[in-house]
Design a protein around this nucleic acid. Structure first.
Lengths: 343, 343
DNA sequence: CACTATGTCTGCATCGTTGCAGAGCCCTCA
DNA sequence: TGAGGGCTCTGCAACGATGCAGACATAGTG
C-alpha cells in the first residue's frame, strides 16, 4: 500500500536521502552522473513524494478551503469554478465544503477540532454565522469573506455594491414604466444583511423617482431557491392590485417567479416583468431569458484569492472591503427582445 | 502565526507531551485532577491540533478528492453535493477539483507530482482520459470511477444502465406516437463511450417497435452544454422533414434545444417533444418543465463513497461495476401536462 | 606549494503528532 | 510482608520530508 520513500530510493541508488531529495526538487547542484543514477532509481520504484510529510516540514499545505452554503446552487457552483481556477493559477488547490446554511456546520469550522488547521486559508461565504461570532472565536487561519454580511472591520470581504445593484435593477423596471414593482427576497433579521442592502436599493430607486413603496409588494423569503420564488409570486398574485414587475434578489427566485407566472397564465414581460441577480447561466436559456444584475464572478474569485494569498504570504494588510463591479444585463424578461445570441 | 503545539501545552501544564495528547484524544486514562490541569492549559493557549502532523503520523488524511470535468454543470454540482454529504457521514471531507475536460489536467492527476498522494482515495469522473491510461499509469491511491467510460475490469465503477435509460426515454417518445425522434449528443469516438451507450439504447427502442432510424436525426455534439443543444436543434430544424421529438443525452442539451425551439416559434411539446437525462433541478422549473431520466444521484454518491471506503479500509474487493437505479420522470415537455407540484 | 574558493554530497536535527514499552505508585490479597 | 496487578504517566522513536552546516575533493590563485 504505502509507496517507496526517499529512503528506499536512496538505498537503491546508494546515495544519501538528502541527495535524492535534491534531485527530486532540483534544489542543489548534482553531478550528471549521480543525477542519472538517482533518476533511474526514482523511475524504477515509481517514487511519489509524500505531500503530507512535505507539508508538515514546510508548514504550509498548498490548500485553501472554500465554504459555501450549497454547492448545487448555480451561483455558488459558478463561483466555485472561478475560485478553483484562480487558486490553481496561484499553485493552490481548493477544498470545497458546504454547510447547508446550518449554523452548527458553520460553527464547526471554527471549533476546536476543525479541519481548518489543514488549510493555508479560508474563503467563507457564511449564511448564518455572524462576523461577530467569527471574530469572537479564535482563528489561526487567514479568512476572507465572500458576498455575505456587511463589513465589520474584522475580515477581508469581497462583494459587489448590493445597494447600487438593487437600485439599478429596480430603476430599470421603473424606467420601463412599471409602477407596481414588487421585491422578492427580503430578510428582515440579523443574518439577512445582504438582503436588507438590496431592499434598501429597491427603496432608493423608488425614492429617486418620487414614488411610494407599497409595503405589501415586499415579500420576504427565508431562502433563495426557485421554490421560494414561485411561492412568493403566487402570493403576490393574490393581491387586489397585483404587481406589473418583480425584482428578485437572485436569479433562482426569479426563475421560480417566472414559473409561477407562466403557470398562472400570465405573460413575461407583457403582464409582469422580471429581474434577477447573479447572472447564472440558466437565465440565458430560460424562456423568456432573464434580465439580471451580473456580478463579476471571475473578479470576485480573483480578488478573494489574491487577498487570501497576501494574508497567507505574511504581509497582512488591514482588513479591507473590496467592491467588485457589476452590470445590468437586459434580456427578454423585461423587454421581450431576445438578445442576439446568449452570451 | 503558528499556533501552540502539544509541547507548549505540556510545558504550561507541567506534564509530558504524551499526556496532553492523551487528554486531547481521550486515549488513555488520566486522573481527573491532571485532566483538569491539562484542559486548563489547552483552553488558555487555545490549542488546535495540527492535522497535517496527525495525518503524517497516522498515514491517512481523512480527505478524498472528487474530480469532475466542470463544477458549474448542474449535474456535477448536484453530484458533488451528494458526495460531500455521503463522505461527511463517513468522517471524510472532500476536495473538489475540475479538469475542464482537459486531457492534460486529467493526466496531471496521475503524474509524478500529483496531489493525489495527499488523499486517501479518489472519485474520478473522467471525460478525456481513458481507463486504459489510468491503469497504465501507476496509482497508489484507490480510485472509483463515476458515470463515464465503460467497465474494463481495472476499476470500481458506479453508473446507471445507460442503454436501458436511453431506451426507456426514447420508447416514451415513441409511445406518444412520435415517429421522427431525433437524438442529440452522440460522440462516435474513443472517449465518448457513455454517449455511444445512449445511442445504442436509442436504436434499441426503435428496433423494438420495428422502426427504422433516420441517421440524419442523430446529431453528435462535442460537449453537453446548453449551447450545443441549441445549435444541434437549429440544425435539425433545417432538415426537409424536421423531427417531432428529441431525446437529448443530458438535461442541459435538452434545455438548449427547447430554447432553440421556442425561438423558432415552435411549441414544446405540441410541435416537438423533448426528453433529457440527469434530472437537474433546473428542469423542474423550466417552461415547459422537462421530462427526463433521473439517475439516483444520492445512491451513486453513497455507493461510490462506500466502495472507496472499503478500498481504503484495506479490504479491497475485486473491481466491480455497480449499477445504480434510474427512472423516467414525465413532465410537460412531452405531455404538456404540468405535474402537480415541482418535486 | 600552501591556501582559498568552488562544487558536490552527506548527516543531523526538526516539523507536531502518535505508537510502544515501560516506570512508578498504590492497593490488594495470600 | 511481599508478590502481583491495575492505574497513571512518561520518554523515546518514528511518520517522510526539508533546512542547515559542514565534509570532502577538486580547481584556481599568488
Amino acid at each position: 500500500m504505502a509507496g517507496p520513500t526517499l529512503r528506499d530510493v536512496a538505498k537503491r541508488a546508494n546515495v544519501s536521502i538528502r541527495t535524492v531529495s535534491n534531485v527530486v526538487n532540483g534544489y542543489a547542484p548534482v553531478s550528471d552522473e549521480l543525477r542519472a543514477r538517482v533518476q533511474a532509481a526514482l523511475d524504477e520504484l515509481d517514487y511519489r513524494p509524500n505531500l503530507i510529510a512535505r507539508n508538515l516540514k514546510q508548514g504550509r499545505s498548498g490548500m485553501i478551503a472554500l465554504v459555501v452554503p450549497e454547492l448545487d446552487v448555480p451561483y455558488f457552483a459558478e463561483l466555485a469554478r472561478e475560485v478553483i481556477t484562480a487558486a490553481r493559477a496561484r499553485g493552490y488547490v481548493v477544498m470545497v465544503d458546504q454547510t447547508d446554511g446550518d449554523v452548527e456546520r458553520e460553527r464547526e469550522l471554527l471549533g476546536r477540532n476543525s479541519r481548518a488547521t489543514m488549510f493555508d486559508g479560508l474563503l467563507l461565504s457564511p449564511l448564518s454565522v455572524t462576523a461577530e461570532e467569527l471574530r469572537a472565536r479564535g482563528h489561526r487561519v487567514p479568512i476572507v469573506l465572500l458576498g455575505e454580511h456587511i463589513f465589520n472591520g474584522s475580515f477581508h470581504h469581497v462583494a459587489i455594491d448590493n445597494v447600487s445593484a438593487a437600485r439599478e435593477a429596480t430603476a430599470h423596471l421603473l424606467a420601463l414604466g412599471r409602477r407596481r414593482v414588487a421585491a422578492i427576497g427580503d430578510q428582515p433579521y440579523a443574518t439577512g444583511e445582504t438582503a436588507q442592502l438590496r431592499t434598501s436599493g429597491y427603496r432608493q430607486a423608488h425614492a429617486r423617482e418620487g414614488l411610494e413603496v407599497d409595503e405589501r409588494l415586499i415579500v420576504p423569503t427565508p431562502r433563495f431557491h426557485r421554490r421560494q420564488g414561485a411561492t412568493a409570486m403566487e402570493q403576490l398574485l393574490t393581491l387586489p392590485e397585483p404587481p406589473d414587475a418583480v425584482f428578485c434578489y437572485n436569479d433562482l427566485l426569479a426563475l421560480g417567479a417566472m414559473r409561477a407566472l407562466t403557470r398562472a397564465g400570465l405573460r413575461v414581460p407583457d403582464d409582469v416583468a422580471v429581474v434577477g441577480m447573479d447572472d447564472i447561466e440558466e437565465g440565458q436559456y430560460s424562456t423568456p431569458s432573464l434580465t439580471t444584475v451580473a456580478p463579476d464572478k471571475k473578479e470576485i474569485a480573483r480578488m478573494a484569492v489574491d487577498v487570501l494569498m497576501e494574508s497567507i504570504g505574511g504581509t497582512p494588510r488591514p482588513p479591507a472591503e473590496i467592491v467588485v463591479p457589476h452590470r445590468l444585463i437586459v434580456r427578454e424578461s423585461t423587454t421581450g427582445q431576445a438578445p442576439a445570441v446568449p452570451t
